[in-house]
Design a protein around this nucleic acid. Structure first.
Lengths: 239, 239
DNA sequence: CAGTGGTCTAGACCACTAC
DNA sequence: TAGTGGTCTAGACCACTGA
């Protein structure tokens, strides 16, 4: 019937662009009702499925809110939300075009200390692997990585050369990630951390703690300590 | 033709559940090719549009990767990504069932200092509003809020009572949010900040700087300083 | 009740990929 | 060239909302 334009944006994106523009410009503001699906069908000369997809995706983005029987409305953007990405330190440094070096400070097996078994979902006093690595960017200490590993998920962990491949990369390979939780805080460097990172004890650090799961349960728990002055998390979001 | 089941999950979610299960269980692992759309059509007895939607949404989630002409594959979950939400401090404290108090330390109009005009997209030396508020949770200092406001976007800013309504809430009301950028870092409290927050100078703080835009441009820039020991950002993600 | 969004179908044409 | 995903249509039935 109607021709599908070649080399152009798909039609549903045209509908989205129209609504985005109206919201950005203030034509529709928070709480306003947007044109109904059938109105957009008439306006753009497309099928309802196409309009429906356009609106559904805008809803997934959080830009609009849809209510069956009532209509589509401009969503209140009360929250600054964006996807926070925590990347492998090697990738992150490489992406900046810099040199990454990993210094292995500790690697071994030991019994879980108080609280450690719980983090990995093991029984108290279970054996686990432990590693401590200092990551440098162009020679400058950037991250101190303290890691606990569930031996059941990565039995060959101790045999790896972590100067060649980061624990993160190795573990992703042997135990595909299916979930994670993390926590970000500011903390003072203790004496050990300060020495490794070339700071003074008490200096502010950005600390990320993360627990990663795979099919077989919790694979690893890691504490990443960064000099506060040298590591910043950034993000943005756009309506 | 085929009946649509009542009171049950939509059919596209059944297809998704099947694929999710296979990926979680390890039936398909990173890089594996998933059944094609037509195979899933045959397997589930649904139309291709339905299967297509199921797969498209899994791709948006990042769980699979699709390539025209080649197939759908299990995506490598290399990144710990999740939606980071920065909420209004009042909401955050109220959600914990605690008492929020705001102490107005400064409120006024002045000329932009060096670097400040740029953050708001104003000309050097332009006039702007400034406020400094200490937020307490159950009496304990939790956040020191230093804010610059573009007068063009919120001309009545100085007349508000910020003990009753946070600047965040007020500004969202008068200038609907259309975008923002933020930055998270660890920093040492300076003398002023330490005094306000009841810390010692040099104590680690979690600092969030955020710039918010509305239709009319940059509305406000804010620096939020939190005692490192008392504020943690958390999040999680699931395959 | 009329209008809304939620879901679904059975086709279709296209661009792309791998063999 | 055969098979893949990308997009689109013109219908349809349904659940829900608000007047």
């Amino acid at each position: 019937m109607t021709e599908i334009p070649k080399e152009l944006s798909p039609r549903y994106t045209l509908v989205q662009a129209h609504l985005r523009e109206g919201i950005k410009s203030g034509q529709w503001t928070v709480g306003d009702r947007l044109p109904s699906e059938s109105e957009l069908v008439a306006q753009f000369g497309v099928s309802r499925m196409t309009v429906n997809r356009a609106l559904r995706e805008l809803e997934q983005e959080g830009l609009i809110r849809r209510q069956q029987g009532a209509g589509s409305f401009v969503a209140p953007l009360e929250r600054v939300a964006s996807t926070l990405v925590i990347r492998d330190i090697h990738e992150e440094i490489a992406a900046r075009g810099h040199r990454h070096e990993a210094e292995l400070l500790q690697l071994g097996e030991r019994r879980a200390r108080r609280g450690e078994a719980e983090r990995l979902g093991l029984e108290a006093g279970a054996r686990l692997f432990h590693s401590r690595i200092l990551h440098r960017e162009n020679g400058l200490p950037l991250q101190l990585e303290d890691r606990l590993v569930n031996p059941a998920c990565a039995p060959d962990y101790l045999a790896q050369d972590f100067r060649q491949q980061t624990p993160t990369a190795y573990l992703l390979q042997v135990a595909p990630l299916t979930g994670a939780t993390y926590q970000i805080e500011a903390a003072a460097a203790n004496a050990e951390e300060a020495q490794a990172l070339g700071l003074s004890a008490g200096d502010p650090c950005l600390v990320i703690e993360r627990s990663s799961r795979s099919h077989g349960g919790t694979v690893t728990w890691v504490r990443l300590v960064h000099p506060g002055a040298r590591h910043v998390l950034t993000g943005s979001f756009e309506a």
